Simulated assay, not measured.
Amino acid sequence: MSKPDIDELAGARADLLCFLVATVAASYALTQEWRVDHVVESCRIWLKRSLIEMHWLERVRIGQLAFKIARRDLKGAGIAVRQSDVQALFTGDMGLNHASTVVQKMMRLCREAL
């Protein structure tokens, strides 16, 4: 049985993008570095956990968009992710914490970007 493509599931692309934006912002808050390797690995993990396929070039594009949003758009939207905020972005199993107001704001930005 093959996995569905990301565009076959409503909202999946926005959810992945938001997860990657949260990962980029959290990684930067913790390391003060923009880490591409964290985005690549996080994308792979999210797709595997969600049982979804995505073409490699689309993975690159969504990763680049996640960096753009995290580096430029979060601040403009009044979102600042500090080291103390990182844990609240994710659930215990490292999914997005949709109850977090910061994640909700990120999701709005991601939907608009798509």
Rank of each mutant, 00 (worst) to 15 (best):
L51D: 14
A66F: 01
A88K: 14
L114M: 11
T101M: 07
V21F: 06
T31P: 09
L57F: 12
E58K: 13
C110M: 01
A10M: 10
V40D: 11
A80W: 05
R61V: 12
F19Q: 07
L51E: 15
R111W: 00
R13C: 03
V40W: 02
D73S: 12
K75W: 07
G63D: 01
M106W: 00
D5E: 14
I79E: 00
V103S: 03
E41T: 15
R59Q: 14
I69Y: 02
K68Q: 13
W46V: 02
L20I: 11
M94E: 13
A12F: 08
T91S: 13
L51Y: 04
G63H: 04
L96G: 07
V39R: 05
L30F: 07
C110Q: 01
S42A: 15
T23R: 08
N97R: 03
E41M: 10
R61G: 13
M54F: 09
M107Q: 06
D93N: 14
E112G: 02
D93T: 14
G92L: 11
Q83E: 15
T91P: 03
C110H: 00
V39E: 01
R82H: 15
V81C: 11
L89E: 02
R35P: 06
A99M: 13
T91I: 06
V36L: 14
T101W: 07
L51S: 15
C43R: 01
Q32I: 10
R35I: 13
C43H: 07
I79N: 02
K105C: 06
A77N: 09
L65S: 12
A88G: 02
T101V: 11
A10R: 05
L57M: 13
R59F: 03
L9A: 09
E8L: 08
E112M: 03
K68P: 00
A88V: 05
C110F: 01
L74N: 04
A80N: 12
Q87M: 09
R13L: 07
E112S: 05
A10L: 12
E58A: 14
M1N: 13
W34M: 10
M94Y: 09
H98C: 08
L17R: 03
F19E: 03
K48V: 11
V39W: 02
V60F: 09
I62A: 04
A12I: 09
W34H: 14
L65N: 09
R72H: 15
V40G: 08
S50A: 14
A10T: 11
E112C: 00
F19M: 10
G11M: 07
Q83C: 10
I62H: 02
G63R: 04
Q64T: 11
G11A: 11
H38Y: 12
T31L: 06
F90L: 04
D93S: 15
I79P: 10
S27F: 02
H98D: 12
A88T: 06
D73N: 11
T101N: 13
K105H: 06
V81P: 13
A29P: 04
V40Y: 07
